[in-house]
């Protein structure tokens, strides 16, 4: 580092005058930073306190990591052990994909009327759309796994309950998305149709639907993607698919097979991601 450059000396020469003139500006600004410090401090205190409140001790953590390392060691090499088991898991993956596909499709079909009902610019009645919104929110805030448990009580164990569970949790999400898409759709085409003497229904059919169709289609694909992930786990509570095998394998500590199944899931999800990304690109690209 340089000692004293002429520039530094020049700047520091009238230090007192500047300090006097801009005293307020030269203040380190503890007061202005107080809010930030309070938020961060509070956050850190809560974080540390949580370790005690949640009973998470360091010795637990260290011992657990040792066991975790053992488990990871036991996972190698991942193998299905026999071909028949491999086909069994492959079938379960197929079932998982079926659940995701059907659940998404049914939810989308059911969400269309609900979306229009919950859209402010279609249904003028405040009460109706508020009620529609709230019920969608309620449905949305219940996790897929909880829906699966409920449906198992209704239709029994198996993939059918899984389809219904995915359908329910997505119905809420789709309805909300749909109504938002409708609300943000441009009014101009609607005015255009109405100005030609078209009915209110015609205005929606020719003015709104063409605008939201590509958006909605790409959202459905996106949800199919994320539902593939959800469908892999609903088997944990007995609603069909690969999750049933996975949770069973972990329960009986068959780590090599469990690792193999996890790998299968990763590959499947990656493949579906790729396909749906391409399709979404095609849909959005073609319509624009």
């Amino acid at each position: 580092m340089t000692g004293h450059s002429p520039l530094r000396d020049a700047f520091l020469a009238n230090r007192d005058r500047i300090a006097d003139q801009h005293a307020a500006l030269l203040d380190p600004g503890w007061r202005s930073r107080m809010g930030t410090i309070a938020i961060f401090g509070g956050g850190i205190v809560l974080y540390i306190a949580s370790f005690f409140l949640l009973d998470m001790s360091l010795s637990n953590l260290i011992g657990g990591f040792r066991r975790l390392a053992d488990i990871v060691g036991l996972m190698f090499p991942p193998t299905p052990e026999t071909w028949s088991r491999f086909y069994l898991y492959l079938g379960a993956i197929g079932q998982t994909l079926s659940i995701a596909f059907l659940g998404t499709l049914l939810a989308a079909v059911l969400a269309v009327p609900m979306g229009f009902l919950a859209a402010r610019n279609v249904v003028a009645n405040r009460l109706v759309h508020l009620l529609a919104r709230r019920s969608l929110d309620t449905i949305r805030s219940v996790d897929t796994l909880i829906w699966a448990l409920i449906w198992i009580n209704v239709v029994g164990l198996g993939p059918f309950a899984g389809v219904l569970a995915i359908m329910c949790s997505d119905f809420g999400a789709f309805g909300k998305l749909m109504s938002e898409a409708i609300e943000t759709a441009s009014d101009k085409p609607v005015e255009g149709i109405l100005s030609t003497g078209g009915s209110r229904f015609a205005a929606i059919r020719f003015g709104v639907v063409p605008q939201i169709l590509p958006v909605f289609a790409s959202q459905i694909l996106y949800y199919f993607e994320s539902n593939t992930r959800s469908a892999t786990i609903i088997g944990i509570v007995g609603a069909g698919g690969i999750g049933l095998h996975l949770s069973e394998l972990i329960r009986v500590l068959e780590w090599q097979q469990a690792a193999f199944v996890i790998l299968m899931v990763l590959v499947t999800v990656a493949a579906i991601d790729q396909i749906s990304q391409r399709l979404r690109g095609a849909i959005i690209g073609r319509r624009r």
Partner: peptide
């Protein structure tokens, strides 16, 4: 020192009030 130097530089270019 750093703060004083920076302020002096701003002052020299007549924009200290914008700090």
């Amino acid at each position: 020192d750093d703060r004083a130097i920076a302020m002096a530089a701003l002052d020299q270019l007549d924009i200290a009030n914008l700090a």
